[in-house]
């Protein structure tokens, strides 16, 4: 019990003091997570829509593949992207390894299958009358799909939020591709990993609490946004 009380004290004092390194880590986490979820949404939502709304050969296999891609370990994605962005890799010349951009790429790949799958489920769960209704009222296919997207926005938002939750809490990609560089690629989760490795459990737990609070805050903001 003392231990947890102590952690809470440390956590509160860090937050109240607006510890600059802590703030930096929170900022970095939000920055890479937000960008990667934007990218993942731009890829995942169209994938979910395309798979959900069209018929094509091997559709079932594609859905199974999408599902299993949700279970790909973060370190595997980290390793894959590492191979591409390291100076030895095909995109080495861009110098992306150990930058926030590298984490964003990895996290976007991590979140895309999640966003795509959940978007797909909402498309498949949507009322089948939506598209014909929009079309008979004169909508083009594109306008009608936008209408559909608007009708299932709760599901789509849930997909985006799940993607955000996944990337903001993951450590494998951030550690491998970011390198845990102080003031640059050190995120909340890599700080937790680092502090734990240094035996600073109290600080690790404190950061964990902050991470949860940040995730909660983001969710609340989105909830309010949906209610409106």
């Amino acid at each position: 019990m003392d231990y947890l009380v102590e952690s809470l004290k440390v956590s509160l004092s860090l937050i109240l003091a607006l510890d600059p390194e802590l703030c930096q880590a929170v900022r970095t986490s939000l920055y890479v997570s937000a960008w990667s979820v934007v990218l993942a949404s731009l890829m995942g939502i169209p994938i979910g829509l395309a798979v959900g709304l069209t018929e094509f050969p091997f559709k079932r296999s594609v859905i199974t593949l999408l599902n299993s891609m949700m279970a790909v370990p973060t370190v595997l994605i980290g390793l894959l992207v590492y191979g591409f962005v390291s100076r030895q890799g095909p995109f080495g010349g861009l110098g992306l390894l150990f930058t926030p951009a590298a984490i964003i790429i990895g996290d976007a790949l991590l979140a895309t299958p999640i966003v795509a799958n959940l978007a797909l489920s909402s498309v498949r769960g949507a009322n089948t009358a939506i598209l014909p209704t929009a079309m008979t009222l004169g909508g083009t296919r594109f306008q009608s799909v936008l209408r559909l997207l608007s009708e299932i926005r709760f599901g789509i938002m849930a997909a985006v939020i799940s993607g955000f939750g996944r990337v903001v809490s993951e450590v494998g990609v951030a550690m491998m591709l970011g390198g845990n560089i102080l003031g640059s690629t050190r995120t909340m989760t890599t700080v937790i990993a680092l502090e734990t490795s240094k035996g600073e459990f109290a600080l690790g737990i404190a950061l964990g609490l902050i991470l949860m609070a940040v995730a909660l805050a983001v969710n609340i903001v989105f909830q309010i946004l949906q209610r409106r």
Binding site: I130, P132, A134, R147
Partner: peptide, 25 residues
């Protein structure tokens, strides 16, 4: 040519918005 389905689907939002959809298009 417009079809009115047997169990019509009204979009989320106001009645006004539903009618506005086709007109806006």
């Amino acid at each position: 040519v417009t079809l009115l389905h047997q169990s019509p689907y009204l979009f989320e939002g106001s009645v006004h918005a539903n009618i506005a959809f086709g007109l806006g298009i």
